[in-house]
Write a protein that binds this DNA or RNA. Sequence first.
DNA 1: TGCACTAAC
DNA 2: GCAGGTTAGTGCA
Length: 369
Amino acid sequence: SHKAGLAGVDASWANRVIEEASRGSRFYQAAQQKAAAVADRASALAASAARLRASPTAAAAAAARADAAVEAIEAGERDLTRRIVHVDMDAFFSAVAERDDPSLVGTPHAAGGMHMLSTASYEARKFGVRSAMPGFIALKLCPALKLVPIDMAAVKATSARMATGVFPTFDPTFTMASLDEAYLDVTDYMARRPHLSLDAVLTEIRSAVAAATGLTCSAGGAPNKLLAKLASDVNKPNGQAVVPASRDAVLAFISPQPVRKVPGIGKVTAALLGGLGVTTCASLIARRAVVVALLSPRSSGAYLRAALGVSASAVDGDGAGGRVAPRKGASRESTFAPTADAGALAAVLDRVCVKLAADLGRLGAAGRT
DNA sequence: TGCACTAAC
DNA sequence: GCAGGTTAGTGCA
C-alpha cells in the first residue's frame, strides 16, 4: 500500500481476494514457506540483539563502534554541493499504451498478460492492481481490467526521445537508470541561470518531457541520488519535490522514511531489520549499535549512510543513456511445468542454450567454463 | 570459482 | 488454467 496510487485501496479486501485466488497453488505454497524462513531469520536476529544488550560490556563496545561509524560518514562523506535530479515516468508502459490508444484513457488497464503485469494505470491501481502481479489475479480484483500487451518498440522509442531530446540540455552526462528513470546533475545548468531555483528546474524538465513524449513524469531534486530518487516518489504522479541542501533539511526528510523505500533494501532485508526494531531511517540510527554488531560491514555501512541521507552524487553517465559499466554476464531462463521426464527437461535446456548461444554470438562473447 | 540469496526494473 | 525475465552485488564454501 505504500506504492503510488495504492494508498486508497482497502488492503484487507484486496488481500482477501488475492488469498482466495492463490490458495492451493504451488506458487503460494512456496511463497508461504519462504515467508516462514524469513520470519525465522528475523527472530534469530532479534534473539542475537537481546543477547548483545544483556551484556553491558559487549553492548558498550558495539555502541562505540556504531558511533565511530556514523562520525566517519559525517566527517568524510556528506556532500551538499551538487544538485541532483531523478526523473521517473508515471506508469510508463501503461502511459505509452494510453497515449497510442486514446480509448484507454480513464479506464482501468494494465501492461502485460495473464501471467505477469509490468505496470497498471492509476484507474486500475484503485482496485489494488499493481506491477509484478499476474493478470489472472488482477482480473479478480478488477473484472473490468483490460490487459494490454506491451509495445516494447514504442516504449523504447519514447525513452530514446527523452534521452536525446530532453536530458542532454540539462546535463550532458545524465544517466538512464532504466527505460523510464534518469539521473541528472543540474549543478552546472543552474550556475548558468542563477535566478532559477531547483524547483523551477524540475518544472522545466517535466514540461520538456511532456512536450517530447506526450506523457507525465515525476521528479525529485536533492543534493544526492538517493534523496533525489526518494523525492521523486513524494508527489507522484505528475508531481515534484525538493530536498534543500542543508544537513537539517536532509535529516528531516530522510528520518521518517521507511527503510523499505531505500533502494537496495527489499522485502527480506526490511523484515530482518524489523527483527532489530528498525522500521524507519530514524529507528535505524537509533538502533545503530545492533545493526553494526550483527550485520556485515558492507551492509551496515550502506544502511547507516542511507539513513543519514548520505549517498553518491556523481551521475557520470555516458550521456547517451547507454550502459556505463561493462557487461558482466548474460543469461536466459524460462519457466516450465513441473516434470520428471528427462527428455522434456533436456528439451528445455536445449531451447534455453540455443537462445543464449545466439545472444553471445551477437555480443561477441563466449562462456569460460 | 561457483552457488545461494537478495534486489532492481 | 494460470505466479516472468535479465542483470548485478554480497557472502560464503
